[in-house]
């Protein structure tokens, strides 16, 4: 006979859900609602006057060529960081998954960067690549390249992409490694016996079986690039030179905090929110179908 536990009353389940619901409401829905509310006003920095302006903050934003530029920058930046952090992490995970000496030590070292705060990570990279002080920068200059991230937008972008990628590799590595270890050895061994070489085994067996992990990481990484890379950009380039590294989230900060334009900044965060919700929805709707669980 089937055993079924039935709880009386509705209070207990709600009470158990309460802490999580409260946290979600206070820390997610409440600020999000505030951002939507503020985006319909213009106000001075001190909040002395507020004027309801309907969608003016949005129309100003969409009439501003800098905003589109920052969208393109974000697109380039997020594609690069997501691609490199996922592929490099996968490569490391595959290597660390092999039977090698001191695998535990490798794994530990590969996880360390995740514990470094974004701003600190930024400063570390800045020091290495600072044109007059940085060791790496001096090596690059010795090779005859006029390395100058302070003026060359491409160099600046390279630098923030490297710092942001480096920071995220550990996280991805961890999940890939766990994913790899959950793939049954027997499947791989069977393929080996059938004569499949390592590369073929990887692409036809491991990679497809890893796809749930890859998909999850894709979503997480995109959210990371959109929101969490702000500290790195702020400490490495400050959005420069000439806006070459001003991403959408950095622009929210610089308009809101440096410019004191809370309405415009709120409008930008609302758009950013919609973009990320849309992206995630698309990923679940279309990419998830191709994922084999």
């Amino acid at each position: 006979m089937e055993k079924r536990v039935v709880f009386d009353g509705k209070l207990l389940p709600y009470a158990l859900l309460m802490p999580q619901l409260l946290i979600t409401i206070i820390f997610f829905y409440w600020p999000a609602a505030q951002a939507v509310w503020q985006s319909f006003f213009i106000q001075d920095a001190f909040g002395l006057t507020m004027q309801f302006v309907w969608f003016e903050n949005y129309s100003v934003l969409f009439a501003n060529p800098d905003y589109y530029r920052s969208m393109v920058t974000t697109l380039v930046f997020s594609c690069l960081v997501t691609f490199f952090s996922l592929s490099i992490a996968l490569m490391f995970a595959v290597q660390a998954d092999k039977h090698i000496k001191a695998a535990g030590a490798y794994k530990t070292f590969l996880m360390w960067p995740y514990a470094v705060a974004p701003a600190i990570a930024g400063v570390l990279w800045l020091f290495m690549f600072q044109p007059s002080l940085g060791l790496v920068a001096q090596a690059i200059r010795a090779l005859g390249v006029d390395w100058n991230p302070q003026l060359n937008g491409g160099h600046a972008m390279t630098l923030v992409v490297m710092a942001a990628t480096w920071k995220q590799i550990s996280y991805n590595f961890l999940f890939f490694l766990a994913g790899l270890q959950s793939i049954p050895k027997s499947v791989i061994e069977a393929a080996a016996i059938d004569g499949a070489r390592p590369a073929r085994r990887f692409w036809t067996i491991i990679f497809p079986l890893l796809s749930p992990t890859t998909f999850f990481l894709l979503v997480v990484n995109i959210v990371y690039v959109f929101f969490d890379t702000f500290g790195i950009i702020d400490s490495v380039t400050g959005g420069g030179p000439a806006q070459a590294t001003t991403t959408l989230v950095y622009k929210v900060f610089s308009d809101g905090r440096l410019g004191g334009d809370l309405g415009g900044s709120a409008a930008q965060s609302v758009i950013l929110m919609i973009l990320v919700i849309g992206l995630t929805a698309i990923q679940f709707r279309y990419i998830e179908r191709k994922v084999q669980y």
Binding site: L151, G238, G240, G260
Partner: peptide
């Protein structure tokens, strides 16, 4: 007014000019 951010905007244009853009 808005001087903190305006300095950044001016600097952006200086950077574009100094980079030859």
């Amino acid at each position: 007014g808005n001087m903190v951010q305006m300095r950044d905007v001016w600097a952006e244009e200086f950077e574009a000019a100094l980079a030859g853009q």
